[in-house]
Design a protein around this nucleic acid. Structure first.
Lengths: 199, 199
DNA sequence: CGTTTCATGTAAGTGGTTACATGATTTC
DNA sequence: GAAATCATGTAACCACTTACATGAAACG
């Protein structure tokens, strides 16, 4: 599913400008789908060219002019069609996790900093979700589920990081002390090769 | 961070072929970074051209020939550099969540199916993580953290979906019965417009 | 006997990011 | 006086996805 389709979906909920659509993304979707102006505005132009949305130019005093977009019947039909045949993918791309994986290659303070940043980001997501939960706008069955689901995941992340960050930092500071495995004594390095070929 | 850098990182752990690198991705990284052959093989060719890895062609009987890649000193240095200046991003793109959000627009059985699929996927991720946790290969401070963190998030997702899926399906089947808000009586539809302009 | 495993690649297409461009108004 | 808000866009670039191509052997 692309940004074009998502814009269509948001316009299903009511008329909006490109700028407002971006805000909708940030308010309720930011924890599972990001989109910037660089993809939203071209998407809207394309949708208009395809007759899936229409717009009215509104002149304003003291504010830049704006285009208020509405979804057309064709647009509604198209959205329903696309939605019906969208496979429910769920992909994470996390440089944070990569940094954690290769934690030994970075200074321990840097890791501490990175974890702190990630915690801050998660707390931020959480407040944004709780704020959206308070607004009546997202109080639909689907809206509630996505917000609650987002909250559950974000809370789990915060809990884990708060609990385990100190342990990791300790391990990194003192690599010889192994706090979890008592039987593995002095395993110095991973073997030179990962190829376990029987040939 | 791109696939090229990730390949370099994996080769930090030991020599491997492109095929094996893909397997490493699947075993330990799949829950936070995906990569297919279509990005791995070109990445390795580029890395070799840049002198960051070398390879030996190994002829095999009964198996296709293969190229075993090793990271060079320049490659190690480059990886450390890139890692040190990688911002810890963490982005989710979830069509599953989009489907949940627009659940009212789909048949209830389809939603049930989608949730079941997502649960199955999560259980799959969980077993893959638990399998990796059993193997000594990922028993490093960083390896443990990424696996445990992945497990925490996946478990939270499973818990939430198992707990709340029946509630959602009930709400969708009987839209008039509102199980959560007792004060909101007969709010029929979201307002025609999302524009809350004061002008 | 069908599927998975091993093994490497290419080529076209897509879709999104980043940076740039502009500028008045309101809030802190 | 600085920063955020409102408001819309373009253009170059980049990285990844998907589909295609090939083929023997082992496993169930």
């Amino acid at each position: 599913m692309d940004v074009k389709t998502l814009c269509l979906g948001i316009l299903t909920l009511g008329n909006a400008t490109g700028y407002e659509i971006k805000k909708q993304f940030e308010e309720a979707f930011s924890h599972f789908y990001a989109a910037g102006y660089g993809s939203i505005y071209p998407a809207l132009n394309q949708l208009a060219a395809d007759g899936l949305v229409t717009f009215t130019e509104v002149e304003q005093e003291k504010r830049p002019d704006k285009k208020v977009y509405s979804i057309t019947d064709a647009g509604r039909r198209r959205f329903a069609e696309v939605l019906a045949q969208t496979p429910p993918r769920h992909r994470l791309r996390s440089e944070f996790m990569v940094l954690m994986f290769f934690a030994q290659m970075l200074p321990t303070e840097r890791i501490a900093e990175v974890i702190e940043e990630e915690l801050a980001r998660n707390r931020d997501v959480l407040t944004r979700i709780e704020c959206a939960e308070g607004s009546p706008e997202w109080n639909t069955p689907g809206g509630r589920v996505t917000l609650e689901f987002g909250r559950a995941l974000t809370q789990a992340a915060i809990d884990y990081l708060e609990r385990k960050a100190p342990v990791l930092l300790e391990e990194l500071a003192a690599p010889s002390e192994d706090t979890t495995s008592l039987d593995a004594e002095q395993e110095p390095e991973i073997d030179e090769t990962l190829t376990k070929n029987t040939a």
